[in-house]
Amino acid sequence: MNDLRPLSELNPGDHGVIAAVHAPEELGKRLTALGFSTGRPLALVRRALLRGPLHVRLGTTDVALRMAEAAGIQVRLAAPVPA
């Protein structure tokens, strides 16, 4: 199953691969510099309260970003690991 979803809708613990990054130029550059580029693996570590920022892990880097910025990042979810 290859589920495509915006990063802002992932649940903590979900992981997958970045399928696309939609962002205006300036934000796009910042995202690229922090490691958000197509094909990179990514996991949602946790969410802050009250629809606050997301804590995302990209390889060896941990990043916090707001829902608005995360909405433009499409993630192809990895198949759930059988328990």
């Binding site: 934000l27 920022p53 804590h55 941990d62 916090a64 970003l65």
Partner: peptide, 9 residues
């Protein structure tokens, strides 16, 4: 500035 910051270890 967009709120996209690194959380260093």
């Amino acid at each position: 500035e967009p709120f996209v910051i690194e959380l260093p270890p």
